[in-house]
Design a protein around this nucleic acid. Structure first.
Length: 547
RNA sequence: CGCGGGGUGGUGGAGUAGGACCACGCGGGUCUCAUAAGCCCGAGACGCAGGUGCAAAUCCUGCCCCCGCAACCA
């Protein structure tokens, strides 16, 4: 039976350009994993899209004096361009503004309502008369009523450390315009996580194959007990509440002025994008969401952890449809830039598109893959980048491939009489392949890349020990055997490198007149001799040094 | 005492009690097929202070530093 894999990646917010933190946090690791799965012959579905709703979008749009939808139209293509440039292999990359998503979000809500997990509740929120809108706590500042510190944000006082609720600020003002802010009564729908707590706890508790810190963090969060959580906001930008379909006893006032809260809606995108993909491609989304043999992998930064291990599973459980829950949340820490957090306002920023043009996509992919923040925050340093690419990718990997191919072409006229694979090489291929797959199955991508580098080192050492350049005059048969063994080793190397470096490995395929025959059910990591090596195109180095 | 993660040679990582390991960088040597590439050898580290143990990077206590979350930022 073909293994089924669903891959969901975090939905990038469309209020700015994507920086290398997004590449390292989910785009590149998810892509490496999905390419590996495809080579293994698994049935893969990888989806995501842009997250287009929420207050930050409306605020950014206001700042630019355009409508939220105009802002989305401006940024969505830029995100798409980046994904195409880096060749992130989504089966569908959509956005939360697509109609299928709207409809499915409303259905999710209605189902939760029907199943008794939604309740209505009155709260007080900060409201700006001048701006004529409710403001999130963090956009309001005033004096902390506990310690009397001035200019504290509405969500927390940084001086005394207390969490603040609406009303805990004295003379609150809008952080955006400085205008006065009042407390206003408003009614919202809440998702009652208390009722789902037991099932969520069982789900998390039984997931002890997760990365240890992810497991502990999720359990730690549950330890404090879940509470009901608002799923609607007083906003005019977002997905509308399906008023017509709500039983009258559940209706609340001003529903036409409310929208679904983005946290509730964005994660449903994983499901709605799958449904949309199935419609477009005429496939079954049920293969991935109802077949218990399908495993769900999610890739995201650590700021998104709780949404994927607690809240989203809760939403799925509440559907009572027996949908597949996350199998493995590949949560990454953060990528820093020269020791600092990426920050547009502080100028700590690199344009991902620009560096791909300047240094090539595969160079950037290689470096980022080598420093993925899988266990703790990691650091993008330009000096490291250059060293890493020049020494590992160019000198070790690139040079190995080049020295073997050019030797084969120049000294053996690209022809081998006897296809005899050295046992020591065969053993290494099998041993590395095993270690590599073992790591990738556990989404340990940095370790898997190290397996590849270790394999390359071995082949370089093998060449030095056997010195085919000397054998050329003393023992031609052995010389052919050594070079043939290296060619087979390189041929297999293509499979291990392609997930990391799709562009250059495609070039290598062309040089060798080979291709990947990817098909569901066919495991390309089972070693098979390539047999004969034809060289049709001029041999050129795959990589060049960064000056 | 809100929850959790982290601090190991210059850099990035591995290592949950008994020889501190890997890769890059650095120093030296060597080959010459190759992109001044390859290969070999070497120097160099457990955040701080206590404690338990025959033995601590690892367990305990206190402190310092970095990061995420803390339910209205997603």
């Amino acid at each position: 039976m073909v293994k089924k894999i669903f891959i969901g990646t975090a939905w990038p917010y469309v209020n700015g350009d994507l920086h290398p933190g997004h590449l390292a946090g989910y785009l590149i690791p998810a892509d490496i994993f999905s390419r590996y799965c495809r080579l293994k012959g698994y049935q893969v579905l990888m989806v995501s899209g842009t997250d287009c709703h929420g207050t930050p979008i409306t605020l950014e749009a206001d700042k630019m004096k355009i409508s939220p939808s105009a802002l989305v139209k401006k940024y969505h293509p830029k995100v798409l361009k980046l994904i195409e440039t880096y060749d992130i292999s989504y089966d569908l990359f959509t956005s939360t503004t697509n109609p299928v998503h709207k409809k499915i979000t409303q259905q999710f809500f209605l189902k939760l309502l029907k199943n008794g997990f939604i309740r209505k509740k009155q709260t007080y929120q900060y409201f700006s008369n001048k701006e004529n809108r409710f403001l999130p706590d963090r956009y309001v500042e005033g004096e902390c009523k506990f310690c009397k510190s001035k200019d504290q944000r509405g969500d927390q006082c940084e001086v005394c450390g207390r969490s603040l609720n609406p009303g805990d600020l004295i003379s609150p003002k809008s952080k955006l315009t400085g205008s006065e802010v009042i407390l206003k009564k408003t009614e919202h729908y809440f998702l009652d996580y208390k009722k789902l707590e037991k099932e969520i706890y069982d789900f998390v508790f039984n997931s002890n194959h997760w990365r240890e810190w992810v497991y502990k963090e999720s359990l730690g969060f549950l330890k404090e007990g879940l509470q009901e959580r608002a799923i609607t906001r007083d906003l005019d930008w977002g997905i509308k509440i399906p008023i017509d379909q709500i039983p009258s006893k559940f209706l609340i006032s001003d529903l036409n002025k409310k929208r679904f809260y983005v946290w509730f809606e964005a994660v449903i995108g994983y499901f709605s994008a799958s449904v949309k993909w199935a419609k477009i491609k005429n496939k079954n989304w049920q293969d991935f969401w109802l077949d218990k043999a399908c495993r769900h992998y999610y890739f995201m930064g650590k700021d998104n952890l709780i949404f994927h291990t607690i809240f989203w599973p809760g939403q799925l459980i509440g559907q009572r449809e027996n949908y597949n829950l996350p199998y493995f949340p590949a949560v990454n820490h953060f990528l820093m830039l020269e020791g600092k957090k990426f920050s547009k306002s502080r100028g700590v920023i690199i344009d991902s598109l620009k560096i791909s043009k300047e240094y090539t996509v595969d160079n950037v992919r290689f470096y980022i893959a080598s420093i993925l923040p899988e266990t703790k925050d990691s650091d993008f340093k330009f000096q490291d980048f250059k060293q890493s690419v020049n020494n590992k990718l160019v000198d070790k990997i690139g040079n190995l491939i080049y020295r073997v191919l050019i030797f084969y072409k120049n000294n053996l006229k690209a022809k081998i009489d006897k296809n005899c694979l050295d046992n020591i090489v065969l053993n290494k291929i099998e041993q590395s392949s095993f270690a590599f797959q073992n790591n990738l199955e556990k989404v340990k991508i940095v370790d898997a890349l190290n397996d590849v580098l270790n394999y390359v080192d071995f082949i370089n050492q093998y060449l030095d020990k056997n010195q085919p350049w000397k054998l050329l005059n003393t023992d031609k048969d052995r010389c052919q055997e050594v070079i043939y063994s290296c060619l087979e080793a390189i041929s297999f190397l293509r499979f291990m490198l392609w997930p990391f470096l799709p562009h250059s490995i495609s070039r290598l395929n062309k040089m060798l007149n080979l291709d990947f025959k990817i098909s569901e059910g066919k495991d390309l990591f089972i070693f098979e001799k390539t047999g004969t090596f034809k060289i049709k195109q001029p041999i050129k180095p795959l990589y060049s040094k960064i000056p």
